[in-house]
Structures are given as structure tokens and as C-alpha cells.
């Protein structure tokens, strides 16, 4: 299939679903579908660092927060100006421009944050890297708590609602295709070589520093975009949405599904998000259930539900040239 045909069909399908989905499944389920989508973006992108490059990061919530707040503040403070400049466009196009501007800013800001965290973290390995990424995430959250212009501890309200099923799942598609293509290119092989054996990778000419930072930056950019979509859907942001526990849930998603597999990350994101909703009626018992389930899955299936299983096989080897 030609690429542009694929994207055209995807756009049309998403638009059609956007217009009918809420009526079909009700507002509550619609919201869950949105949350699932955002978590898929976060999990698939986190998988790039943790699953493919083998660097243990538990600070994803920090980049998510940077994106969410950057996009929200841009649209909140710069929105009127952007609307003014695009007044000749219909409302829906104005909204799209605003959201795209927010997404763009979110990606850049979160990417810069990812770079800033990635560089110093390179000297650290394993659990030390883990705790430092967690620390960076918490530092970002505390900084946000102390900035009054974006609501501080009161939370940031009055964010225009711009994202919806169409946008969220368009980004889901883009994320999945990007990560899939990336890990099946020389970049992906470089990432995986670092995970498998960093010293051998360097000896084969893989600039491990560069690739590690790259996977941090790409991964954070997508987390930032997810943040933007989240803020412009819920119209309200609070630093507590970006506690390290959020990062934990993302890690849980990719490990439950099966580390280093895109399908696994998607499955994990769907499962965790939906399970938490299903258990909601049990009150505190909801997370008791969830946590015991988690422990049991990891005891009885430590490689994750899908393991290294993959739906989209990479291309087969070509026959040797004569």
C-alpha cells in the first residue's frame, strides 16, 4: 500500500469515528478511550528508552508534565494572539492551528528537557540512572508547584479544550509508526546493541552516548506531545497528575505487556488503564486488586504477557549476492 493512501484512509477513518464515537459509547467511555490513547503514546515512547535502548528511566512523568504545561501556557497566554492572526480561518481550523502550535512547543520543550536529563545521566548505570531520572521528574514537578503563572499548587485551569479522539489517535498512529520504523532501521539496531552489550556496541562504532541521548530526546518529545493532548482534553492540570507514581504506572504498562515490543506496550497501556477503571467501583480495594494482580503476573509471567512476541515482523533477509 502506498504510504499516502494509508494516511488518507487513516485520517478519514479517524474523522468519521470522532464524529460518531461519543454518541455511540457515551461520554464516560469516550473519556476512557482518550486516556487509553494518551497512555499508549506514553508507553510506546517510554519503551524506546527502557525497552529498546535498555536504559532504565523512571522519570517519564516529568517530560509528560513539561509538555502539558508548556502547551497549556502557550495556548492560554498566546491563544488570543494566534486566533487573531488566523481570524480568517473557520473556528475548527483555528483550533487545529492552536493545538498544533501547542503540540509543537510541547515537543520542543520536553525534548530539551530530555536532552538536559539525558546528558548528565549518561555516566550512570542501572539503578543509579533509575533513581536520578526519578529525581529529575520530581524536581520538575516541584518547580511547577512553585510557578504561580501556571497555577502552582492550585492547578492550572481554564485551558481551552482542543484535543479529542481524532487528534489523540492520530498521534497514537504517528507514534507507533515512528517508533516501529525507527527500531527497524539502523538506529533501532544501534539502540538494541546498546541494550545487549554496551562495550561491544562501542567497539563496533556505535556512538553509545549519542544514541542514548537520542532515544531520551525522541522519547521525551512524544511524552511532551502526550502531555499537550492531555491538558487540552481535561482543560485542567495539576502537578499531582505527574507524581513519580505516574512514571511507575507507565513502567508497569511496558513491563506487563512485554518489554521491547510495541504491541506489548500498547497492550499494557490498554490493560492498565482499563483495569484501573473497571476496579474503580471497589474504592481503595481497586488498587489492592490491581497490585496483587500485578505481583502475580510478574511472578507467573516475568517476561510480560506478550514477551518478545511481535506482530509486525521485520523484513526477511535477502539472499546473499553471488
Amino acid at each position: 500500500m502506498k504510504k499516502w493512501v494509508f494516511w488518507l484512509v487513516a485520517l478519514a477513518a479517524l474523522a468519521a469515528m470522532e464524529s460518531s464515537l461519543r454518541g455511540l459509547i457515551g461520554a464516560y467511555n469516550y473519556q476512557i478511550v482518550i486516556l487509553v490513547g494518551i497512555n499508549i503514546i506514553l508507553a510506546v515512547s517510554l519503551n524506546l528508552i527502557n525497552g529498546y535502548t535498555g536504559q532504565f528511566s523512571i522519570g517519564h512523568a516529568g517530560f509528560y508534565a513539561v509538555g502539558a504545561y508548556t502547551s497549556a501556557s502557550l495556548v492560554f497566554y498566546g491563544g488570543p494572539a494566534i486566533r487573531g492572526a488566523t481570524a480568517f480561518l473557520p473556528q475548527i481550523a483555528q483550533n487545529a492551528v492552536l493545538l498544533l502550535a501547542g503540540i509543537f512547543a510541547a515537543a520542543i520543550a520536553a525534548g530539551i528537557a530530555g536532552w538536559a536529563v539525558g546528558i548528565p545521566s549518561l555516566r550512570l548505570r542501572g539503578d543509579y540512572l533509575a533513581i536520578v531520572t526519578l529525581g529529575f521528574g520530581e524536581i520538575i514537578r516541584v518547580l511547577i508547584l512553585n510557578i504561580d503563572a501556571i497555577g502552582g499548587s492550585r492547578g492550572f485551569s481554564g485551558i481551552p479544550q482542543l484535543s479529542n479522539f481524532f487528534w489523540v489517535y492520530l498521534v497514537v498512529l504517528i507514534t507507533v509508526v515512528t517508533v516501529h520504523n525507527l527500531v527497524n532501521s539502523s538506529y533501532g539496531r544501534a539502540f538494541i546493541s546498546i541494550r545487549d552489550d554496551e562495550i561491544a556496541a562501542e567497539a563496533m562504532g556505535v556512538d553509545t552516548t549519542r544514541y542514548k541521548v537520542m532515544s531520551f530526546v525522541i522519547s521525551s518529545m512524544f511524552a511532551g506531545i502526550a502531555g499537550s493532548l492531555f491538558g487540552h482534553y481535561t482543560m485542567y492540570l495539576h502537578p499531582n497528575s505527574f507524581l513519580f507514581t505516574t512514571s511507575f504506572y507507565l513502567i508497569i504498562m511496558i513491563v506487563i505487556g512485554g518489554l521491547g515490543s510495541i504491541e506489548g506496550a500498547i497492550l499494557g497501556a490498554v490493560l492498565v488503564t482499563v483495569l484501573l477503571e473497571v476496579f474503580r467501583e471497589f474504592g481503595a480495594f481497586r488498587l489492592v486488586n490491581f497490585s496483587i494482580l500485578l505481583v502475580l503476573i510478574m511472578i507467573y509471567r516475568p517476561q510480560g504477557l506478550l514477551g518478545a512476541w511481535t506482530l509486525f515482523r521485520p523484513r526477511k533477509a535477502a539472499p546473499a549476492a553471488k
Binding site: I192, S193, A200, A201, M204
Partner: peptide, 13 residues
Amino acid sequence: LFRSMTVLENVKV
């Protein structure tokens, strides 16, 4: 060797 890669992928890296 890169343990999760195939023989061919090892050389490709």
C-alpha cells in the same frame, strides 16, 4: 555478541 539479535543483525550493526 548482541544476544537478542540474529546472526545477520549482529553484522549489520
